[in-house]
Structures are given as C-alpha cells and as structure tokens.
Design a binder for these strands. Structure first.
Lengths: 199, 199
DNA sequence: CTAATTTTCGAATGTACATTCGATAAAATA
DNA sequence: TATTTTATCGAATGTACATTCGAAAATTAG
C-alpha cells in the first residue's frame, strides 16, 4: 500500500520505455502493421508485460499521442500568454513547435501525420490538437484583421503553412534548431508582409 | 476461345463495379480496415467472385491507384506538351488536376492521400505519381529561374502549394469547376508575382 | 439440345495477430 | 525470515479476416 516514490518513478520509466519502443515500431510498420510482439522485443519486455502496463494496443497508441500533444501544448501556453502582435506571437509559436520537434525527433512527425490515419472518436489527445489548431487559426485571423498579414483566406493560409512548415522542420537534414530568422523567412516567402515595401 | 467483344467489355464493367465499391469501403474504413466481405457487399458480388477478377485485396487497391494515376497523367500530357511559359503551364496543370478531381469526386482525394499510408515498393502507379511530381517541380524551378516566380526554394513552394491546392479542390463544398481565375488567385496569394507591382 | 466455358458464391481453411492465463520470480514489507 | 505485493513472461485462447474449395448456375458454342 505505501507505494514508494521510487517505485512509482520506475514504473513510469518502464512505461516510457514501452512507449518509446512502440513509437519506433509504429513508425516502421504503420499503426496497423505494428505487432505487440515486435513492440515487446523493441522495448525489451515480454509480450504479456505490455499488458501489465497498458490495457491494449490502442491504449499504447493513445498514450503516445496524448503525451506528445500535451507536451506541445504545455510548452506553447506561455508563448501564447505573452501579449505580442499576432505576427510576432505566430512566429514564436512556430519556433516553439520546431524546438519541440528537434528535441524528440520522430515523435512529432508521427504526431502530425497520425490524424490522417486514425478514425475513432473521442480521442483524448484531440482536445490538445484542436486547441493548437484553433490558436493558430485565430492568430492568422487576427493578423489578417489587423493588417499584419495580407488578406488571404485564413483556411488557405493555414493549409499552405502546414505543408511549408512541416517541410522545414521535418524534412531538413539539419541539426541546428530552427531560428526566428528561419521562420520569418518562411513567412516572408509565403506572404509578403504588406506593411513592408517589396524589394 | 472466341471471347466476344461484348464479353470482354462486360467483364471490364464488372471489374470497375468492384473497384468502385472497393473505393467506397477503403475511404470509409481505411485500407487496413476494409474487408473483402464489405467490398463484396458494396459492389454486389459474392466474396469469392472478387477473387475471380482480382488476385488479392492488394491487387484491388493497386488497380484503383494505377487506374487513377494513369488517367490523371493522360489528361495532363497534352497540357504539358503545349509550349507556354512555366507560370501559364503551371496554372493549366493545376486546373486540369482540379477538373479531374471534380469529375470523379472521392477518387482523387484518396489518390493524393494514400501514399502516406502505403509502404510497399515497386507500386506500378508510383511511376505516374513521380512523373507528375517532377513535372510540377520542374515547372516551379523554371519559373523561379525565368523570374516568373519569386526566388523561393522550389521544394518549399511545392509543399505549400500541395496543402493549399488540396484545400481548394477537396475541401470546398463548391460544385462549380475550379477556374483559371481561382488558380491565379491562389497563386497570387501564395507568391506575389515579382513582375507586378504590389498594390 | 448437349457440351464446354464462364461466372457466381457460401462454406471451409489457414493464419496472423491481440489478448488472457497461470505460473514464477523478484522486491518490498513487517 | 515469512508473507504480501509487484513484475515478468511464454504458452494457450479466441477472433477476425484473407484466401481457397467445390459445387452449381448461367451463358455461350457446336
């Protein structure tokens, strides 16, 4: 009954080990292609042990996603709280996401691609994903309203940025973190800031 | 032995019926989630009959994709052959793709999203997909070189356009075909034509 | 009309997992 | 140390399909 602190921590560590192995397998074979056998091997436990820590395969997947989105969201909250102009906040948000992606390579690419594949409703991680998306959309809308962004359909801009940003963060072979210069450049390529003269 | 023409045609028709049912099921449940049972129901044949026309489930999927990409490519060839400026050709290519998408709604969205999910090498349809992608990338590169497009990394532009264009073609509730006006607008939103003055 | 062929299909087969069992070991507790 | 709790795991179970069988309609050919 006492459940020592160390015990709890080690238990958590073991869960993370499993999650980390599972992520590799998911990325290698896709969600449906991944087997519990391989996840067990990859993470160094017996197959049955996985079920000691997680209720099901789906539960493992959900844990990965919830964990990831939660971490993104938490890292973003302070950035959003700062009261800067939409454009500035926007840049900071993108930088922060890029930072996250750099810190745990692989996880975030998975995070941003999985939604296309998973169907089931009521995924707890969706809440955080939705929050992030509406913040970004809100920033774009505000930027358009205040004239900081050109008058483009926010939905379109969102989509364009999605593709562009993913390209920058995930496809680059670079090791260096994405800087605000990078993001500014990206933004300037995508949308010419109407308050600046075109060179 | 004679195999009358009608016989051959009807056979072809039946194959298409199966493919069409299969597409619905694939879109509804995803590739792995789709069962041969449901495809059989949906297309109005007995399960075993599917195997009279197709070697396997994967074969059904491949047929859908090969068919789709081939049709896109064929419709695009004349457009590409015309010797216009990169920007003009580019617009025409996008319009043509949008036309295709409008003609067979559902198929093309599937076509453009599936690659992210399928792994196996040597997919025959990949050849056409690759051709299309390199044509588009080539047009962008030419446009940048000739100064018709601003000096953006072609890879970035490709990705941004991907997101944007898919948004325009697939997400719109619109019934009307996508016009060259639409595409031009899209292009102008994405990249300010450097030869024109910014308003 | 009779034989060959093409087409159709439900039921049987086989397999690849996800999940559970039942037992054991290791660690914590008293 | 004795006992309880926690952790581990390979083998057994069950199930959901993909694929094949074997037989029978339906159609075509002679």
């Amino acid at each position: 009954m006492p459940q020592s602190q160390r015990q709890i921590e080690e238990r958590q560590l073991r869960k993370e080990r499993i999650l980390s192995g599972a992520l590799q397998v998911f990325k290698k074979h896709g969600i449906d292609g991944a087997t519990m056998d391989e996840i067990a091997n990859e993470s160094g436990f017996g197959k049955a042990t996985l079920y000691y820590y997680f209720k099901s395969k789906e539960d493992v997947l959900t844990a990965i996603l919830l964990d990831g989105w939660l971490k993104i969201w938490e890292s973003l909250e302070p950035v959003i709280a700062q009261q800067h102009s939409p454009r500035k906040t926007f840049v900071n948000v993108l930088i922060k996401i890029a930072e996250n992606a750099q810190k745990r390579p692989g996880l975030f690419e998975f995070l941003f691609n999985v939604p296309k594949v998973v169907k089931i409703e009521k995924q707890p991680w969706k809440e955080y994903q939705d929050r992030l998306y509406s913040v970004i959309k809100g920033l774009i809308e505000d930027g358009v309203k205040s004239g900081e962004f050109p008058n483009i359909n926010p939905n379109h801009m969102f989509k364009a940025l999605g593709g562009l940003f993913m390209g920058l963060v995930f496809m680059g072979d670079r090791e260096e973190p994405v800087t605000d210069k990078d993001v500014e450049k990206l933004l300037n390529q995508l949308i010419t800031d109407p308050t600046l003269p075109t060179n």
